[in-house]
Design a protein around this nucleic acid. Structure first.
Lengths: 159, 159
DNA sequence: GTCGCTGCAAAGTCTTTGCAGAGAG
DNA sequence: CTCTCTGCAAAGACTTTGCAGCGAC
């Protein structure tokens, strides 16, 4: 599945790096590199969406029906990827979590309460304040997340 | 259970108001005011914690064992209170949600990844930026939440 | 009295786990 | 070859729902 050419597009280069990181990580921890793990990473990479374990499983079944990947493997791999900080999970209102590649820049989320779509944003001022607040409260910050809930532009028009 | 005296403490006044709001709301929607609903509201009010449905149920069982309140009623009442914006739920990492009275001032959360404790804070600068961001992205903001994850002062000492 | 509410238990979701066979290193 | 992974199905955790009797109004 890895392409043996030097003519990578930007996107391919990013993916190749990601894949190499993942492989190193597996090796360091005496874990095996399996086709299922690759396909899960690749599908997460290809999708610009925030995926639930179920929707990710669905995509994989469609793309590689012969692999017959089990949902349990998707859950197991997502946990692995999350522990390794390769993906991040987002949990909100409803049951379940959504996952996204975490290798990208940190960002926060705008979540539409009508259509469920998620828009990303980053705001330096907010990032700074967060660090300050953790410091003031003598909290050793590991991570943070912020969500704004509302109705997106598209859904506002439709109503 | 309601106290017929004019000698309310601050806390009692707040609770009485909350209770009256809840009663009005029930009446408006042709719902009934039951002892279970009152006890659930009261227990949420008395607890300064963020409670899971299970822990709330536990507290109620301890305080009013004769009522024999069912966990299903706790879930049903919490949904009702959340729809009515009397309580707010917080969902993060693990499974399940935690609930708190939402009548208080808006605030954000610092969540300790070791002991699960939640500290609240408010930061005006962050609040302002959130409004700006929603505006810029033509998002009709309804709500927002922010969590900082890390290790609290207490847990840092213990390690 | 009526009609909504409650506790109980059963059913639903979503997620995790045990196991035997498959497959990576 | 060894030891981890996988798919499957069963088990778990959390939440919702159907129902018959109870209780607020």
């Amino acid at each position: 599945m890895s392409k043996v050419t030097t003519n990578f597009s930007d996107k391919t280069i990013q993916y190749e790096q990601l894949l190499q990181n993942f492989k190193s990580l597996l090796k360091e921890n005496n874990l095996k590199f399996t086709i299922q793990r690759e396909v899960i990473l690749e599908t997460l990479y290809d999708s610009q969406e925030h995926l639930t374990p179920e929707s990710l499983h669905h995509l994989i079944q469609e793309k590689y029906p012969d692999l017959n990947t089990g949902i349990a493997t998707v859950y197991r791999t997502l946990s692995l990827l999350e522990e390794s900080d390769i993906v991040t999970s987002l949990s909100f209102g409803a049951q379940g979590k959504k996952y996204e590649l975490g290798a990208k820049e940190h960002h926060d989320h705008l979540i539409c309460t009508e259509c469920g779509n998620i828009t990303e944003f980053v705001d330096e001022q907010i990032e700074e304040r967060q660090h300050k607040i953790a410091q003031e409260l003598e909290f050793k910050m590991q991570d943070h997340s912020m969500q704004i809930y509302g109705v997106c532009k598209k859904c506002q028009k439709e109503n």
